[in-house]
Design a protein around this nucleic acid. Structure first.
Lengths: 114, 114
DNA sequence: TTGACAGTTGAACAATTGTTCAACTATAAT
DNA sequence: ATTATAGTTGAACAATTGTTCAACTGTCAA
């Protein structure tokens, strides 16, 4: 829908609008956060923090089915948060970006403070 | 459901499980990220970055209805990301925690790099 | 070359989450 | 007091998102 209320402070609204991040960037940032907003994906990232794991072992650590893991790994892969290598019958997943753990740590600290 | 695949490396799984963050903390961290995972909420936080705004003006900046704004402000308030003061007929909202913008900035940088 | 196992995929389903709508409260102005 | 305006609320609805299920691919071992 559209706005259903009149502007109170015209100038302030104009200025604030001018300072806003573009819609496309807002969407890419919120999509990024959405990835961390799911506990299964967070657990997967957490599990891969110290060592690479094959899908089967990852399932056992995180306590999910192969299918659920595979779907979530696809999302993480598409967003360049994990990468993988094939090893015989197994597929070994690992973090693609250590940077990511820092983001999680920042959130944990923030929550710890409140 | 439960895991549907056998363990490959028993010891690795055991060790990794031991290192995992507790489930309750995983949930609170993912809930935290969920808040930033919505573009409307992100826009609201972004709009309040430089100046406090009354609900009506916020609606005009972010382009949403009063009701939608109010619901989202409730969520942000419950999570201590915004606070408000009453001023006559208006309710003025402002950020409760500058820390939050840092988290968004970190995400933007991360996305900019890839 | 057949059987077993590891992982993937798409569609159906279930659950969660955001928006809309209509009714409501509270404040200010006449 | 009455009316108009600002904002809130809960329930219904719509949309999005995660999980399950069953069928599939590819690799290894017998």
């Amino acid at each position: 829908m559209v706005v259903d209320t009149p502007i109170v402070n015209e100038e302030k609204v104009k200025e604030t609008k001018a300072r806003m991040i573009s819609d496309t960037e807002i969407y890419s940032v919120s999509d990024f956060f959405k990835i961390f907003g799911d506990s299964t994906r967070l657990k997967i990232l957490c599990a891969l923090e110290n060592n690479p794991l094959c899908v089967g072992d990852l399932c056992n650590v995180v306590d999910i089915t192969k299918s659920a893991a595979s779907h979530q790994l696809n999302i993480l892969k598409a967003n360049k948060l994990v990468k993988f290598k094939k090893q015989g019958k197994n597929v070994i997943y690992m973090l693609d970006d250590e940077h990511v753990l820092m983001i999680i740590e920042t959130a944990r600290k923030h929550l710890g403070e409140k």
